[in-house]
Structure formats: C-alpha cells, structure tokens
C-alpha cells in the first residue's frame, strides 16, 4: 500500500458528503416484487400517485402525465391502492 494513512488531525471532524443527492447512484428498484403499470388511457392526471409515492419514483411530466421510474420504485403499491380511477395495476416481476 502506497497510500499514506491520515493522521487524526487530518481526518474530518465528522463524515461529510459533499455530493448533493448522491443516493441517486443507489438504485432501489431491485427491491421490487410487484411492478406498478400505469394505463395512460385511464389516467386523469390527478397527481395523487405523484404526491403519495415515498421514493419519489413517480415522474410528473410537463403535462402532468405520470410515469414510473423503475430504477427506484420499491413496489410498495401505494400508487395502485390510491389511484381514484384504478389506472395502476401491480403485476408480478420476473
């Protein structure tokens, strides 16, 4: 090892993360067992799924149409449970 270990004086006082929103590099989509599928024909653009998604993994488009970001969606099913017109169905992954 050619890296010189830092002395305690050189260590930061506490762990510091300087890259804002670096969690975007950590994809949580692999947690998902059920995949939400949105029927755009049925969607009335009420935005409830966008507001209620905990990740957030619902992308709100310019026209208020919505899309699922499968990189991060954990498959909780809140969106499908809350959609007032049942435009979202949960289908098994795999």
């Amino acid at each position: 090892m050619s890296v010189r270990p830092l002395s305690w004086r050189e260590l930061p006082a506490a762990p510091v993360i300087t890259e804002a929103g670096s969690a975007l590099r950590y994809k949580t989509g692999s947690w998902r067992a059920l995949r939400p599928v949105i029927d755009r024909g049925k969607c009335i653009k009420c935005l409830l799924c966008w507001v209620y998604c905990p990740e957030p993994a619902i992308i709100r488009g310019e026209d208020d149409g919505v899309e699922v970001d499968y990189d991060y969606c954990k498959g909780c099913g809140i969106c499908a449970n809350e959609c007032p017109v049942k435009a979202i169905s949960m289908v098994e992954e795999g």
Partner: peptide, 8 residues
Amino acid sequence: PGHRLCAG
C-alpha cells in the same frame, strides 16, 4: 430516491 427507507 435511492434512500433505504422501507417500501411504503
């Protein structure tokens, strides 16, 4: 997103 809070 990319946080590790539980699903739901």
